[in-house]
Each structure stands twice: as structure tokens, then as C-alpha cells.
């Protein structure tokens, strides 16, 4: 009496070589690209798994072989490749099993079915992983691109702010020895530093003795801003000039008092006009009307 599944062992070499030939013969398949030797190894592995599982009554070897196969061609395996493998193996094995006992034939059918299930499951899992990796790479690329855009926007914004700061801290010589600095917008530490630098240079260049800082265009003048002006004033004084602070509104004056800021070291005035008058007086000058009556002047 013949041993169970003896026909498989008998057909082993033929099955493997025919399967390898089919795998290698299909144009465009991942198996053909991998070469004949790989196709032979895959075919021999699957037939060996069939024999092992037939002997053990389990599906473990087939399962392992299929998992290894999907893993081996990770990312490159197409569904059509898997389909070609499964249909080729099935047709060859069932042809070889044509004379086998019905029970053995059914067992082989079940084994092939399990093989397809495992292959499909691993294929889907592999593809899912590939999609996830692609999606992650895409997200990273998008984030990098957004970051680059933000960096460029930030650099542009910084440049514009610098332009605005430069433009909003003009130092205007209004008369010999008198400079006027009309401040517009927020007055922060960075701007105070810029003001001090520009002012000290301008004092040197213009040989100025009076600097009038007009803060009527500064929306918020708090204790910190006052401290910054006092420091600027001290620096101005070191060059032998005097800083007049003008443009204090009643509200700002009240705030400064409430905050307890001591502006005693600063000469403060209500308006730019008062400041200019005071500055002229300091230089022993005054604004006088041009007398242009009949018979006088031109």
C-alpha cells in the first residue's frame, strides 16, 4: 500500500520546475525580474512546504513560506504576481493530484486555500504599511515645505519691521544745534537702542546741544518706556547735549504719576512747539515775526 501523499514526493521535482518556469516566464512580473534562480528557490520552497504540511496535517510550513515570500518582495510585489503564483501552483498541484484519493485531494485544496488567504493577508498588510510610510513621508515633506514658507515669511516680516523701525525713528535737524525726533508707534527696548545709537551719531554730526523727543505718536508710554527714554537722555547728556521730552498727553502724564516713575531728570513739555521754543531759548534764540510793512523791508 502506498504511503499517504506519496504522489507529491513523486511529482516533487516536476512540480517545482514547472512552477519555476511559469513564474519566470511571465513578462512584467516581479518573479521574472528576480531571475530564474529565485523562481526555482521559491517554487522548491513552496512544494517542500506542501510536502511538510501534508505529512504533519497542518498549514504551518505553507504559511511560513508565503509570509517569507511576501516579505522578500516587500513593496515590489503586485497583486497580479500573487494571483499568478497562486493560480499556477494550484493548477499544477491539482493536475498532479488527479489520481490521488479524494481525501488527499481535498486536503491539498484546503492547503492551497489557506495559502491564498495568508498571502492575501500579508500582501494587504504590506501594502498598508507602504501607504502609511508614503503618507508619513508626504506629511514630512509638506511640513518641511510649510516650515520653509514660514521661515521666508518671517525673514520678510523681520526685514519689513526693520524698514519700518528705520523709517519711524527719524532724526530731523530743525535748526542749528537743535534736533527733533518724532516717535511714532510702539517704543520698545529694541527701538530705544536704535534711537540712542542714531541720536548719538546725529548729535556728533550736527554738533547739536538740544534734542527734542516727541512722543505724541507713541500709543503706549509706560514705566518701561519712560526708563528707556531716561537712559537715552543720560547717554545724550554724556555728549554735552540736553534731551527734552515733549508730546506728553494728560493721560500719559497721569499714568507716569500713577506708576511712580521719576522723570525729574528729564525736561518734559506738553507740545513740540513748547519744546522748540525752549530749545531756541537755551541757544539764546527766538522766533520773531518778519516785519514786512509798507516802506519797510522788501
Amino acid at each position: 500500500m502506498q504511503a499517504a501523499f506519496a504522489w507529491i514526493e513523486h511529482e516533487r521535482a516536476g512540480l517545482a520546475s514547472q512552477l519555476a518556469e511559469r513564474l519566470a516566464g511571465r513578462a512584467g512580473s516581479v518573479f521574472r525580474s528576480a531571475g530564474e534562480a529565485t523562481c526555482t528557490a521559491i517554487a522548491e520552497g513552496l512544494i517542500a512546504a506542501l510536502i511538510a504540511d501534508a505529512a504533519s496535517g497542518k498549514d504551518a510550513a505553507g504559511r511560513e513560506a508565503m509570509l517569507a515570500l511576501v516579505q522578500r518582495f516587500s513593496g515590489a510585489l503586485a497583486y497580479a504576481d500573487l494571483r499568478h503564483l497562486a493560480t499556477s501552483l494550484r493548477s499544477l498541484v491539482l493536475a498532479a493530484a488527479s489520481g490521488a484519493e479524494p481525501g488527499e485531494r481535498q486536503r491539498v485544496e484546503d492547503w492551497l486555500f489557506q495559502l491564498v488567504l495568508v498571502g492575501a493577508m500579508r500582501f494587504v498588510a504590506q501594502r498598508e504599511q507602504t501607504f502609511q510610510e508614503q503618507a508619513a513621508r508626504l506629511e514630512v515633506r509638506q511640513l518641511e515645505s510649510q516650515l520653509e514658507e514660514l521661515k521666508a515669511a518671517f525673514a520678510e516680516k523681520t526685514r519689513l519691521l526693520e524698514v519700518i523701525r528705520q523709517a519711524s525713528t527719524p532724526v530731523a535737524p530743525v535748526h542749528e544745534g537743535i534736533l527733533v525726533v518724532p516717535l511714532v508707534g510702539m517704543f520698545d527696548a529694541q527701538r530705544a537702542q536704535m534711537l540712542t545709537e542714531r541720536l548719538l551719531n546725529a548729535i556728533g554730526e550736527a554738533r547739536a546741544s538740544v534734542v527734542i523727543v516727541d512722543i505724541s505718536g507713541v500709543p503706549l508710554f509706560d514705566a518701561e518706556a519712560a526708563e528707556l527714554v531716561i537712559r537715552t537722555s543720560q547717554a545724550v547728556r554724556l555728549l554735552g547735549a540736553q534731551l527734552l521730552l515733549v508730546g506728553l498727553s494728560p493721560g500719559v502724564a497721569q499714568t507716569i504719576v500713577d506708576l511712580g516713575v521719576d522723570l525729574a531728570s528729564l525736561k518734559t513739555m506738553r507740545s513740540l512747539q513748547d519744546g522748540i521754543s525752549h530749545a531756541l531759548a537755551l541757544r539764546q534764540l527766538r522766533i520773531a515775526p518778519v516785519v514786512n510793512g509798507p516802506g519797510r523791508g522788501r
Binding site: G28, A78, D81
Partner: peptide
Amino acid sequence: VEHGAGGCMDEGGSSCTYLVS
């Protein structure tokens, strides 16, 4: 529709194989 193995025209190959199920 899957792109078969064996090269792609966009990557310098002479042809593309498409496997259609």
C-alpha cells in the same frame, strides 16, 4: 491596475508593463 516589474519609461526604461486585474 498595477505597475509591473522590469522598468518604467519615466525612469529611463523602454516600456512599462501594467498588470490589470
